[in-house]
Design a protein around this nucleic acid. Structure first.
Lengths: 148, 148
DNA sequence: ACATATAGGACCGAGGGGGTCCGATATCGT
DNA sequence: ACGATATCGGACCCCCTCGGTCCTATATGT
């Protein structure tokens, strides 16, 4: 359930890999080879990430992609937002007046809250943490207590 | 992003509606009419929910569906699990050894943790809460601090 | 200049989601 | 006992999006 698309998954893999050498420029060929994915697909993902300014592209020889920001400043939510549309667990919570015509759907507000909790969770996990072998206790705390 | 299927959304709407009269038997026709969805679709959803024992079905005249458990004992995660496959944000975190061949993908463990946090969130919200106009502060606390 | 690399888009096949319909079966009411 | 009412279980279908490929234009380094 709640599965995100495979491209998004790949996106996080690519980003996490690049996060290990934040200043380096990586070509599509390199990333595809190292991460074991098809080059065109890799390219497609990078393009999307670039359009949302999560990576910077440089064209021409010796060109490639580089993280636009330090890994600590890029969250899972950033990557997911870039790869898939904007946030929203339910269709109903995005488009009003669909499910219950006049009953004033009480679900909507509740879904919004749930959404926000999940979003905060995803927002609290950075690429720096994801690229490390395991979420440290401190980071885990940040994940488990996203409340303001 | 992370959008769950429309059928799942409808499923929560149906369940939340039934939660307001937990002991009543509701026919497909009634639910479809009140909630404004097509009858066959409503039926399909109920069947799925019944197969996962979230609702009880009674056939024949005056038959219909009824919650299998009190609304306080049914969580959003239950409904989502019944409607969509079992949990899992990523493909990679379900099937091992896909993304990084030998690097021992550090993402996997981290994704697992994130998954668990989200699951606990969804687990902490009951139908009783969802059917009420808004998540009360107490429930909200339960949502925001799902950590053990 | 030439090789290298990304940008941007067209294109396409497969799969699953959303939705409909039908025959079988079980129960209530008369 | 008979008929009306409902769910059950499955088959069936359309269509859209995802995952993936390829081609041309453009920009950069040697």
């Amino acid at each position: 359930m709640l599965r995100m698309s495979k491209l998004t998954d790949y996106g996080t893999v690519i980003m996490a890999y690049m996060a290990r050498r934040p200043r380096d420029v990586h070509s599509v060929a390199e990333l595809a080879a190292v991460l074991g994915m098809a080059a065109p697909t890799t390219s497609k993902i990078l393009k999307r990430l670039a359009r949302h300014e999560l990576v910077q592209s440089s064209r021409g020889a010796k060109g490639g992609y580089r993280l636009a920001r330090p890994p600590e400043a890029i969250s899972l939510a950033d990557v997911i937002d870039a790869m898939e549309g904007p946030f929203g667990l339910t269709e109903c919570s995005a488009v009003a007046g669909l499910c219950l015509q006049e009953a004033g759907c009480p679900l909507r507000d509740n879904w919004q809250r749930v959404n926000q909790v999940i979003r905060r969770t995803l927002d609290g996990v950075t690429l720096a943490e994801m690229s490390r072998p395991a979420l440290r206790p401190a980071a885990q705390g940040a994940v488990a207590a996203p409340q303001t």
